[in-house]
């Protein structure tokens, strides 16, 4: 089965990713990152994952881009231009090609795209699809799995979001240090000896 729309959108994503790789202007890179997220949201709609598409459009294309732009305002807008020694270009490329080849080899005996008899559809998903209306009573299966069947998982994810915020606050609130270096312990000891 060949899904034309799906392949076309994935092709657009590939083009966007290549442009991100080649561009030096970080502002353009961040905006293309937003476009990349929006394209992936379209793919999610095409693959029936409406909840995921919704989240990706709001988070990936919205908040993520705003945060990246905020970071650019605090740092710099251009990537440094310089000639790199050739081993710095070829070594990562070889690593990527080798990893990619291994992954493609791994897909060869994977179930076909859209195959209803794939192992993934045989294990817990039938329970969710057949019984969730009687056990939880929500028309949206994703919500009932998210909040009820896998409630522990979501509690963990919520805690991770909370912890990340605490981390950002620890890193970025408080006074901005003007003098770049704090005196080290040895220097403090020297000062004490002088006194």
């Amino acid at each position: 089965m060949l899904d034309i729309l799906d392949i076309a959108l994935l092709f657009f994503m590939a083009v966007t990713a290549i442009s991100i790789l080649r561009l030096k202007n970080l502002f353009a890179v961040v905006m293309l990152g937003g476009i990349y997220s929006l394209l992936s949201a379209l793919i999610f709609v095409n693959l029936d994952a409406v909840d995921v598409a919704f989240t990706e459009a709001a988070v990936g294309a919205g908040i993520s881009t705003v945060l990246m732009l905020g970071t650019l305002a605090l740092t710099s807008r251009e990537e440094k231009q310089e000639k790199k020694p050739s081993h710095k270009i070829w070594l990562p490329l070889m690593v990527c090609i080798a990893t990619g080849a291994a992954l493609v080899y791994g897909t060869l005996d994977m179930p076909r795209y859209g195959d209803p008899n794939a192992p993934i559809h045989k294990h817990v998903a039938p329970r969710y699809i057949n019984d969730s209306m009687d056990e939880v009573g929500m028309p949206n299966i994703v919500t009932s799995v998210l909040a009820s069947y896998r409630g522990f998982d979501t509690l963990g994810e919520t805690t991770v979001v909370f912890t990340a915020v605490v981390g950002v606050l620890i890193l970025l609130t408080g006074r901005r240090r003007r003098d770049k270096r704090e005196p080290t312990l040895e220097e403090l000891e020297e000062q004490e000896e002088e006194v």
Partner: peptide, 26 residues
């Protein structure tokens, strides 16, 4: 219906992903 389980996993992963990206940007 398509399989809802990957949808749930990825839905939460997206939000956690932006939270960790924000930490990286910080």
């Amino acid at each position: 219906f398509s399989n809802p389980l990957p949808h749930v996993l990825i839905l939460t992963a997206i939000v956690v992903g932006i939270a960790t990206t924000a930490l990286g940007l910080a």
